[in-house]
Measured scan of single mutants.
Amino acid sequence: QVALSRTQVCGILREELFQGDAFHQSDTHIFIIMGASGDLAKKKIYPTIWWLFRDGLLPENTFIVGYARSRLTVADIRKQSEPFFKATPEEKLKLEDFFARNSYVAGQYDDAASYQRLNSHMNALHLGSQANRLFYLALPPTVYEAVTKNIHESCMSQIGWNRIIVEKPFGRDLQSSDRLSNHISSLFREDQIYRIDHYLGKEMVQNLMVLRFANRIFGPIWNRDNIACVILTFKEPFGTEGRGGYFDEFGIIRDVMQNHLLQMLCLVAMEKPASTNSDDVRDEKVKVLKCISEVQANNVVLGQYVGNPDGEGEATKGYLDDPTVPRGSTTATFAAVVLYVENERWDGVPFILRCGKALNERKAEVRLQFHDVAGDIFHQQCKRNELVIRVQPNEAVYTKMMTKKPGMFFNPEESELDLTYGNRYKNVKLPDAYERLILDVFCGSQMHFVRSDELREAWRIFTPLLHQIELEKPKPIPYIYGSRGPTEADELMKRVGFQYEGTYKWVNPHKL
């Protein structure tokens, strides 16, 4: 086992960053958080920038500027975001240094004079007029057009580079997404736009490419001749908990499936790229999406959770019991969808996408189930092999396979070949997804960000279904809070070829 401390991990990262040409360590950078008073800024962006600063992973002359409508001070920003920093008493001095680099400007999102004030403020910072500028839009999409237009007109660096990070949702359907994309691309070049999907920053999602293309053993079996089906799962054990009003506007397909799960599907299904260059990788992902037809209604199961009468606390409440959810809402909190990649490698292999709230566990994984062994000599005792990439929690890679049961006879039983990170790298604290992705933006690497043509294809696949749901308002199937979801989803999976045995229990190697 390799035991690495946080300091050692960050030392390795620093070495990698400083050796590259793309990370300008000594240049002045300004990180501007648009929507600095909001939840995302408070819980994710400010803490992430602090962790990067604490670990010495930001360029040395980096300033952080918050911008929002609320009249706040840096002290206010500190008060609301610091509880999420997880700072230790030993880091007190470092924390003071961090907040000394912070400033805040209040202004409207659609007022040109406010942006001119913001620009004057940035120019007044040390070497601010020639600094590289990175704008993070932690804002609702309704203000994107006004904000990007004003940034472009008043706040661009004339000497350094300018980059803009856009948070999902990128529209509600193909038409609104196209409108937003066309607007942003009329102001910024594609190499300046970073559409963030934080799932692409997760260690195991990034590991998929290495697993596939750096190991000879997987190449020959990664196709329709050997793989019976692919299941991509995202499960949350909690409901909307008072935030249903926002969720109800989008629903589970827009929230998770059309982005996170579809991105994971691309990494499983794509061909080997010409290189690890950002556009070479994204070219292959677009090719996969172009091979997927629009979702067919007979390959869809929609569910909505109801309270568990035997549960406790939140578990007793259904989705419609959330006071922020519109009365009688038919918005799905669970969806199972089957897609097919219609190309030579994957023809006929079902890709089953499942996601839901208020389920029995927290889990995100990719599961490849292989065909049955031909010419069975073990009297149907063999179960199908599976390769599982567990994204969260407890990152893991393992192969479910058959071995001989101890004893006199040739009785096979299920076991696993474990390729888990935790076994080799004991207690290594890896940077989280937002840390990686923000560092990628500083480096100018777009590999783990969504390109406009990729986004367009993703919406093309799901828009007809979303429009049909909005028009017909089908009643989702009720499922109990804390269950596996509607049984109809299991029946759909069985119908397209997935075999669920229920006889195997994964042993978490992190707890051995």
Rank of each mutant, 00 (worst) to 15 (best):
T276V: 12
P486T: 03
T463Y: 11
D347F: 09
E342N: 11
G328V: 11
K285C: 14
N411K: 11
C291L: 09
V268W: 01
L262P: 02
W459I: 11
R495N: 11
N385A: 10
Q499R: 05
L289R: 01
N277R: 05
E488P: 07
L430K: 13
P474N: 11
V341P: 02
V338F: 02
F334V: 02
T276F: 13
T399Q: 09
C266P: 10
L339F: 11
D280N: 05
R390W: 04
R460V: 00
G328N: 01
Q499S: 12
F410S: 06
P273Q: 00
Y481F: 10
D321N: 13
G328R: 09
M493D: 07
D347I: 05
R354W: 07
K429C: 15
V349Y: 00
G482I: 00
N299K: 05
K357M: 12
P474H: 11
G497F: 14
A297T: 13
K404A: 15
N308D: 12
N259L: 14
K475M: 09
P323W: 07
E488M: 08
S445E: 14
D490R: 12
N385W: 13
P486K: 02
G422V: 08
E454C: 13
D321Y: 08
V281S: 03
V301H: 01
L302I: 09
A269P: 01
P309Q: 07
L465M: 10
M408Q: 14
V507Y: 11
D310W: 13
D310S: 11
V286N: 07
A335F: 00
P478F: 05
Q369F: 06
G313C: 11
Q296A: 09
Q380Y: 14
N508R: 11
L471E: 12
H260K: 12
K511W: 11
Y500C: 14
T503H: 14
Q446D: 01
N394F: 14
A358Q: 00
L419Q: 04
E271P: 01
K404W: 14
G328K: 06
H467I: 06
H379S: 09
P474W: 11
T399D: 05
I477D: 09
G407F: 14
A297F: 13
Y434G: 14
I389N: 00
G328H: 11
P474F: 13
S483E: 09
G422L: 07
V507T: 11
Q304W: 00
V397H: 03
L302C: 07
S445H: 12
E414A: 12
G407N: 05
V295I: 09
R367T: 03
L466W: 05
L302P: 01
G444W: 00
S452T: 12
N411F: 03
P406W: 13
E470A: 09
N427T: 14
S445L: 13
N298W: 09
G356R: 00
P478E: 07
K473Y: 05
V256S: 08
V496Q: 09
Y481R: 13
C266S: 15
D322C: 07
E365F: 02
T503N: 13
H467M: 12
P464N: 08
D418K: 07
M402C: 09
Y481D: 00
K285Q: 13
V441N: 00
E454K: 01
F370T: 04
E312K: 07
K429E: 13
P323E: 11
G318A: 06
C443G: 10
R362F: 11
T316F: 08
Q380W: 07
R424T: 09
L339N: 00
Y340T: 08
S293K: 10
R436S: 14
S452Q: 03
I292W: 03
K357E: 05
V337H: 02
D490Y: 09
R384L: 03
R436M: 12
L289C: 07
H510D: 12
E395S: 14
S445M: 11
D347A: 04
T333L: 01
K429P: 15
G407M: 07
W459V: 13
V388W: 04
E501Y: 06
A358E: 01
E472Y: 10
Q369V: 15
G444K: 05
R390P: 12
R456M: 06
L320F: 07
D255G: 11
S278F: 07
L437D: 15
V286H: 06
L353A: 03
E457R: 02
P350G: 00
A335W: 01
T503P: 08
V496K: 12
P326I: 06
N360L: 02
E414P: 11
F370H: 01
R345M: 13
R362H: 09
R460P: 00
E344P: 13
N360Q: 04
H379K: 10
W506L: 12
E413S: 11
N411I: 08
D255Y: 12
G313S: 09
R384I: 02
P478W: 06
M270L: 08
F410N: 03
Y319P: 00
Y504W: 14
L455H: 03
K400L: 14
H371M: 09
V349W: 01
I477H: 09
R327T: 07
L471C: 04
G311H: 05
D310G: 12
R367G: 05
V397P: 07
R327W: 10
D432Y: 07
G407T: 12
Q369M: 14
E294L: 05
N394L: 07
V300L: 09
V281A: 08
E361R: 13
F449A: 03
P509D: 11
S483W: 02
E491R: 08
V256H: 15
A433F: 04
D490N: 12
L455F: 02
V295Q: 03
E314V: 05
D376Y: 04
L466S: 07
L417G: 06
E501M: 06
P431G: 11
E488I: 08
A269H: 01
L267Y: 14
K511I: 13
L471R: 09
A374I: 09
D372V: 06
G313K: 10
P464F: 04
M493H: 07
D280M: 13
L466Y: 15
N308K: 11
P412N: 06
D440Q: 06
G303E: 01
A396S: 14
E365D: 09
V306A: 07
D490E: 14
G311S: 14
R362G: 11
R345V: 09
P350A: 01
Q263H: 15
G375E: 12
G328M: 07
L339C: 15
A315S: 10
Y500M: 15
Q392A: 09
D280Y: 10
P486I: 12
T503V: 14
N277S: 12
I438T: 03
W459S: 13
Y504G: 12
E365V: 04
K272D: 03
L289P: 01
K317N: 05
G356Y: 00
W459A: 11
T420I: 07
D453Q: 03
D418F: 13
L466G: 03
N298Y: 11
N423T: 10
F351S: 00
L465I: 13
Q392L: 14
I477A: 15
G375P: 15
H371F: 06
P474K: 11
K475D: 07
E414G: 10
E271L: 01
I469F: 09
R282E: 01
G444M: 03
E386L: 02
N508T: 09
P350T: 00
V388N: 06
E416Q: 13
Q499K: 12
M493A: 11
V288E: 00
L267E: 02
C382Q: 12
P464Y: 04
V441Y: 01
N411V: 05
